[in-house]
Amino acid sequence: MKRVMRMLGAITGVIAPALAMAASPPGAASCLGCHTVNGGDNPVPPIGALEAEQIVSAMQAFRTGARPATVMDRVAKGFSDEEIKAIAQWYASAKPK
């Protein structure tokens, strides 16, 4: 029974984010390569815990080099201001309740 419950949990953990991504703005799914929405065992900050303004500000700082990064500086350069705002608003609405 424990094995079945673990398997169901693993399946839910894969399917639920995929279904949620179906309604996301273009590019939002790429964030989940490193970030989680609501935390977990991940050293990368959960993106769903941030306000939209925090995400926009961070992405702009990564893009200009004002905020040091190993990967996010290159990621941020791939999005327009409008795309960043749409993604930020979408993730901010995914906050843990």
Results as ranks from 00 to 15, higher is better:
residue 78 G to W: 00
residue 87 I to Q: 07
residue 30 S to I: 02
residue 52 A to F: 09
residue 6 R to D: 08
residue 36 T to G: 05
residue 66 A to C: 10
residue 59 M to Q: 12
residue 15 I to Q: 11
residue 29 A to L: 05
residue 90 W to Y: 13
residue 66 A to P: 12
residue 7 M to F: 12
residue 81 D to M: 09
residue 3 R to F: 08
residue 58 A to M: 12
residue 21 M to Q: 04
residue 5 M to F: 13
residue 25 P to A: 09
residue 14 V to F: 13
residue 8 L to R: 10
residue 46 P to K: 07
residue 47 I to C: 02
residue 48 G to W: 09
residue 62 F to W: 07
residue 1 M to N: 06
residue 69 A to H: 01
residue 4 V to D: 06
residue 31 C to I: 04
residue 24 S to L: 02
residue 5 M to C: 11
residue 81 D to P: 10
residue 49 A to I: 06
residue 34 C to S: 09
residue 83 E to R: 06
residue 74 R to A: 15
residue 87 I to S: 05
residue 21 M to H: 03
residue 26 P to E: 11
residue 1 M to L: 11
residue 88 A to L: 10
residue 83 E to F: 00
residue 32 L to G: 03
residue 25 P to N: 12
residue 6 R to Q: 07
residue 69 A to T: 05
residue 54 Q to N: 06
residue 97 K to S: 12
residue 88 A to S: 12
residue 44 V to G: 01
residue 7 M to P: 00
residue 67 R to D: 09
residue 10 A to C: 08
residue 15 I to Y: 13
residue 29 A to M: 10
residue 48 G to Y: 07
residue 79 F to H: 15
residue 81 D to Q: 14
residue 10 A to S: 08
residue 86 A to V: 05
residue 74 R to M: 14
residue 14 V to H: 03
residue 67 R to C: 10
residue 13 G to N: 04
residue 64 T to N: 03
residue 40 G to K: 01
residue 50 L to V: 03
residue 62 F to D: 07
residue 41 D to K: 06
residue 67 R to M: 13
residue 56 V to H: 03
residue 86 A to G: 04
residue 91 Y to P: 10
residue 92 A to M: 04
residue 14 V to S: 04
residue 37 V to Q: 06
residue 22 A to F: 08
residue 27 G to C: 05
residue 50 L to F: 15
residue 15 I to T: 15
residue 63 R to E: 11
residue 35 H to I: 06
residue 68 P to Q: 15
residue 21 M to T: 04
residue 53 E to T: 12
residue 42 N to P: 01
residue 49 A to V: 07
residue 13 G to Y: 00
residue 73 D to P: 09
residue 5 M to T: 13
residue 18 A to T: 02
residue 50 L to I: 04
residue 14 V to P: 00
residue 64 T to F: 02
residue 35 H to A: 11
residue 55 I to C: 05
residue 91 Y to N: 14
residue 72 M to Y: 01
residue 46 P to H: 06
residue 11 I to S: 07
residue 84 I to P: 07
residue 80 S to K: 00
residue 62 F to M: 03
residue 54 Q to K: 11
